[in-house]
């Protein structure tokens, strides 16, 4: 009788372990792809021909919305760390993006820079799908003065970190208001715990 009870317990344990194992394998196979999408050749874009949006005075941005990739995030100011590299929002706040405060604010003349994580160890972060953006997609920035500035994407590119396009991102730009969105992309190096590339989205203010 005791043998029968033990056997039934063992069968139940094996069944539970098997079911859980198969479920985990299925979950792993159907989970969001581990690597972020990269910009395609058609995303490079060219010069924009439409009329530019208005140029505004300085005002800190509070929020970013990118409907095409379902991004709706708070913005916090960031600058540089003591080593001179760009500061990013802390990894424990992966849904927040950072506005590069030493530069212009979104809506001012020049390039405003917004940086966000592509992922953390736990999964996708705020700019995971940035590489999916295409020319013409819309980015909206809500500022502290209550104005909402709308930008249209001009192009998306992937650049090796060792050859980061400093002038393209931070440069003076044209007379109008422009936006640069920056995140990581390319290959993830497990040893250095860092990606090989940066994804840069170029956008211009539209009326």
């Amino acid at each position: 009788m005791a043998w029968l009870t033990r056997t039934r317990g063992a069968v139940a344990a094996v069944t539970v372990a098997g079911t859980a194992g198969i479920s985990l394998v299925v979950a792993g196979l159907t989970a969001t792809p581990g690597r972020p999408p990269q910009p395609g050749a058609d995303a490079q874009g060219g010069g924009r021909t439409g009329s530019p949006g208005p140029v505004l005075p300085r005002s800190a941005p509070l929020r970013i919305d990118i409907p095409a990739i379902d991004v709706h995030a708070e913005l916090v100011p960031v600058a540089g760390d003591p080593h001179g590299t760009l500061e990013v929002p802390p990894l424990d706040r992966p849904t927040v993006a950072g506005w590069y405060r030493p530069g212009v604010s979104p809506g001012e003349a020049g390039n405003a820079v917004v940086v966000g994580h592509v992922d953390t160890r736990d999964g996708p972060a705020v700019f995971f799908d940035l590489g999916r953006l295409r020319p013409g997609d819309t980015v909206r920035i809500t500022r502290a003065d209550g104005r909402v500035v709308t930008f249209a994407v001009d192009g998306v590119g992937a650049y090796p970190k060792w050859n980061f396009p400093t002038a393209l991102v931070y440069g003076p730009g044209g007379p109008g208001a422009s936006l640069r969105l920056v995140t990581c992309g390319g290959r993830f190096d497990e040893r250095s715990r860092d990606y090989s590339h940066n994804i840069v989205v170029r956008a211009s203010a539209v009326p």
Partner: peptide, 12 residues
């Protein structure tokens, strides 16, 4: 700033 943005933690 120097170089690119360290904006990923390797969520794969």
């Amino acid at each position: 700033p120097i170089g690119g943005a360290p904006a990923g933690g390797g969520g794969g």
